[in-house]
Design a protein around this nucleic acid. Structure first.
Length: 153
DNA sequence: GCCAACGTTGGC
DNA sequence: GCCAACGTTGGC
């Protein structure tokens, strides 16, 4: 069982958009970075928990939790020329990009801002607070996960 | 809107 | 395989 942090721009998909889906599930797709893809495809497992993080918004913050509920699937958006996630180099014979389904678990009453995470001496090694860290999927250690849950929620 | 820090592309 | 140019991310 692994823990993760996944990013989304709330004006595209917010935590409550996931909550509103049928069965509170939707594909986590549009990943177009190889390292993020490798995490998604190879290191994630069904049942893993991910913090849901809102980026590129007024208050970048962890806003809730979701669960990984599917094996990796081929990201169909890569085949759609109209999609912003279209990639002509991904083919049905040799698909390049993958997605998984996520299921809403919880929306926190109070989001946990990046600013707070950066100030926490227990989280100086957390991937999210490292300089230049832009991956849309990042690993979270069990220690970090438990610290965050026990301290802030 | 700025810009640092990457990642990707493509000529050579 | 190098590396310059370009594109993207995302906090501020």
């Amino acid at each position: 069982m692994n823990y993760w942090l996944i990013k989304s721009e709330p004006h595209e998909i917010s935590i409550n958009d996931v909550k509103k889906m049928p069965n509170q599930k939707r594909p986590w797709d549009g990943i177009r970075n190889y390292q993020a893809r490798n995490y998604l495809k190879n290191s994630m497992h069904i049942g893993d928990i991910a913090f849901f993080y809102h980026s590129s918004c007024e208050v970048p913050a962890i806003v809730g939790q979701v669960k990984i509920v599917s094996e990796p699937r081929i990201d169909q958006l890569a085949f759609s020329p109209k999609s912003p996630y279209f990639d002509p180099k991904s083919t049905h014979e040799n698909p390049r990009w993958f997605c998984r389904d996520i299921q809403w678990l919880e929306t926190y009453r109070h989001p946990l801002p990046l600013k707070t995470l950066k100030k926490d001496p227990h989280l100086t090694d957390m991937a999210l607070v490292q300089k230049g860290q832009r991956l849309s999927i990042m690993p979270v250690t069990k220690t970090e996960y438990l610290h965050i849950i026990n301290t802030y929620f």
